[in-house]
Design a protein around this nucleic acid. Sequence first.
DNA 1: TTTAGCACTCTAAGTATAAGAGTGCTAAAG
DNA 2: CTTTAGCACTCTTATACTTAGAGTGCTAAA
Lengths: 345, 345
Amino acid sequence: MATTLNERKEEILRAVVVNYIKTAEPVGSRTVARAYPVGLSSATIRNEMADLEEMGYLVQPHTSAGRVPTQLGYRYYVDNLLEEDQMIMDDGFDISNSLSAEKMREIEQIITYSTRVLSQATNQTSLIMGPQFKKSAFHQIRILPLDDKRGLVVLITDTGFIKNKVINLQQQLSQTELHQVVSYLNQKLYGLTIDQVTTSLINELKRDLFRRLEILEQAFILLEESLKEEKQIRVFLGGTTNILNQPEFRDVDKIRRMLNLFEQEPLLFKILEDNSIEDDIVVKIGSENEFEDIKECTLITGTYRIHDKTLGTVGVLGPTRMDYGRVISVMRYLVNHLNKSLSSS
Amino acid sequence: MATTLNERKEEILRAVVVNYIKTAEPVGSRTVARAYPVGLSSATIRNEMADLEEMGYLVQPHTSAGRVPTQLGYRYYVDNLLEEDQMIMDDGFDISNSLSAEKMREIEQIITYSTRVLSQATNQTSLIMGPQFKKSAFHQIRILPLDDKRGLVVLITDTGFIKNKVINLQQQLSQTELHQVVSYLNQKLYGLTIDQVTTSLINELKRDLFRRLEILEQAFILLEESLKEEKQIRVFLGGTTNILNQPEFRDVDKIRRMLNLFEQEPLLFKILEDNSIEDDIVVKIGSENEFEDIKECTLITGTYRIHDKTLGTVGVLGPTRMDYGRVISVMRYLVNHLNKSLSSS
DNA sequence: TTTAGCACTCTAAGTATAAGAGTGCTAAAG
DNA sequence: CTTTAGCACTCTTATACTTAGAGTGCTAAA
């Protein structure tokens, strides 16, 4: 791990990684010789590559084939050899442009759009964990009577969430009664995060209010239910079909496993959440990932925040052979953009 | 088209179709002979099959292979030979059970859940067009002031839709002013479908109100915008990975084309909308479909409604080799269920 | 330390062969 | 006239074999 390679080995490792990322074919010594600026014969490079193989940075698929980077090889590349792409891409996809063009308003819209941009810019599958509702704080709660039997509960958080739910009211409420209840709730809940609203707190409120009004049983059950339900978080996916373009997913069986994974939101959530603790951008290569299903993939994540509070996580998932430079720089840009556009709304 | 087959040919055609649906392998005369109850030799059946081939109901992939149903063959099967499955399935998936188990409240939830059930019960991809917002009628509109700069517009339709949107108010509004505006809007809009709210009507309202209040410019722009935007309809997908289990999608290229299609919501919408005119359940086999991309598929659709108003369309999409009996009966059941559970909410 | 040369290994592609499934046709039987 | 047995024929699929090519490792010379 702590080993450092001499400059020539680094140069060769880089050449192999870059080439393999581009072509998905094992890289031979001759190919590296051509790519390597100083005239160095293929034989010399062969020797160096043999060394790199022994050290665990490269492997051969079979005895007489070129070399392919190992997980360790990619790791070294990412940690020591990587220069990030510049943002205006040569192949024409200009992320800064496509992000600023659309003026977006609602959080959900911003997220959906971001997954699309992210997957298009990276040619990988992108996943974004929506803002964590449960970590948001109450801003206010409102109850709108719809007709004599029904009301609309509206919940607004400091991070701009608006949740609503129709509830059935068993008995009719007068305007004043409703007003009383609502302002009491607002007073008690203001500033608390959704996380902090436990069942016991709700029960306490319920008892408190019962003394004054005996009508709201229904409303409370529904409030409680609504909170429970909203604790789960949506994961937004983009460009899932991009994996079909990767030669490592030539196999229908692998495709199936991958797409199945994509349909399991709770699992995706766990995968992303795992990384959301850390700051900045995290690159997890192959088995560095905890989860069995993506042991052959690389997951690159970043977190976006509002007023220094972590809101959610952005991820790109693809084969370990991935254009690290590009993905990282795109993600860096996107996270910045999200930070800005979410805090301004 | 108007041709009718004699009973023996029908029996044989059915045997071929049923067998091919089950095995995905061309069906030979010997296989049919075994399946055919009366002792009839394979040679006889061979002759009959040759006839059926000439009439266009069967084809051979190559000279010395069994037969496969043509589009016409499937059509005849669906129109004349089909007995629907009973609902409690032998393979253990009990749709009536899984539908009644969950008590669902919100429309979106019901739909999402239905796609899952439908795809699981049929092993195909299911698609459901959400209730058509634009065909719903205004029930009421509300404006909730959030703080001094922002308000929340809430729109409720007769079909149970609740849409909301935060708007920025340029100037502060007093409670009474707001109340006036809202009740005016409700009075004017009540009972109109979203479709009927044209830009010109909005302009008229705007002019009307301007005479009394000069503050609401912002609110109106946003109302307008919000309407425009909501005219697009979501299509919900389920079990997209099921196509990977079909041998006809062994080819990665076909998979890609299919999955790409699934990512294009407007196209899916068109595909479904095309069928929503008709009543009951519609089976479109192969090139009976208008759309190039699904010329090799069968699409089975049904419509669900509330108070005799068509709300949306349910579809199952898969290869022409599809268990028609099962899909149709599942769909019939689901549509009934949707009709009931949507009208009761 | 680098490089040229060469034997060696392994894959991928192409060819040949054989087995098997299913047909169509003919002629006999019902 | 219909049904059936028999048989030659066709086409696909699987298996084995061969070959070309890419790339290596090693040795010995520069």
